[in-house]
């Protein structure tokens, strides 16, 4: 008996065909690849002023000539499903005080050109940018590491923000209700890229609306003269 069994066993091939196993694994891999999110989304930090009333003395004073006010606008369309979309984004700006005599409001665009937002901010923020560029050159050479570089840039920016006499632009971003959300984020991006130390998002005030009306030819639509803007 035993002898007979032994001889029969020899006939079995011990090799297993792995092809179906590979097939199955491939299917599983495909499934996991399609269902996963490898890229985590990023975030942009934002700080808004408090709604509490601030004492007049506690308010930070800024030089009017430093201020640049950007007004973001667009066209809102709502489809049948009630989903609204903002298109035709437009950006206007004025420097310093609003010009209530001639109602000047200039056009500007996003971009890298000299007369686009990037170029304009670079020109206005030259002092800080030279410091930052020097640091960047050091960092690229490997003379300082990441954390030192970041800390130094932050220090330089904070120093500029605290120094009332420094030559620095102060940016006020005023999106109308019709502005595109992506534009607001883009604008905040420009603040980061150009190392703007002081900027703020605010609602349009009365003077801005007047300027806007003169520029566009119709008053602000869609209840834009909105809610919480404590600062005057």
């Amino acid at each position: 008996m035993a002898k007979k069994d032994k001889s029969r066993q020899k006939k079995f091939d011990t090799r297993i065909d792995f092809t179906p196993m590979v097939d199955m694994n491939m299917l599983l891999i495909t499934f996991f690849m399609l269902c996963t999110t490898m890229l985590k989304s990023q975030t942009l930090d934002l700080v808004l002023p408090t709604n509490d009333n601030v004492n007049k003395e506690e308010e930070t004073k800024i030089k009017e000539s430093d201020a640049i006010t950007f007004i973001l606008d667009g066209n809102v369309t709502t489809d049948k499903m009630g989903q609204s979309k903002s298109t035709d984004s437009k950006i206007y700006y004025y420097e310093g005080k609003p010009d209530m005599e001639n109602f000047t409001l200039n056009d500007i665009k996003f971009g890298n050109d000299k007369d686009a937002i990037r170029g304009m901010l670079q020109k206005r923020n030259k002092e800080l940018l030279t410091i930052v560029n020097k640091l960047k050159a050091d960092w690229k050479k490997g003379a300082i590491n990441d954390s030192v570089y970041n800390a130094k840039v932050r220090d330089a920016r904070e120093k500029q923000a605290a120094d009332l006499n420094a030559k620095r632009p102060i940016i006020v971003i005023k999106p109308t209700a019709n502005a595109c959300y992506a534009d607001v984020v883009h604008m905040l991006d420009e603040m980061q890229i150009n190392q703007i130390s002081t900027y703020q998002i605010e609602a349009l005030n009365k003077q801005d609306s007047t300027l806007y009306e003169h520029k566009v030819g119709h008053p602000l639509g869609g209840g834009a003269s909105a809610p919480a803007a404590p600062a005057k």
């Binding site: 609204s84 903002s86 209700a177 019709n178 502005a179 959300y181 992506a182 869609g222 209840g223 834009a224």
Partner: peptide
């Protein structure tokens, strides 16, 4: 991204 800012603004006002 293409939403009008007013939608986001309402949320921000509430947070404030």
């Amino acid at each position: 991204q293409s939403s009008p800012y007013s939608l986001v603004q309402v949320v921000m006002d509430n947070l404030q």
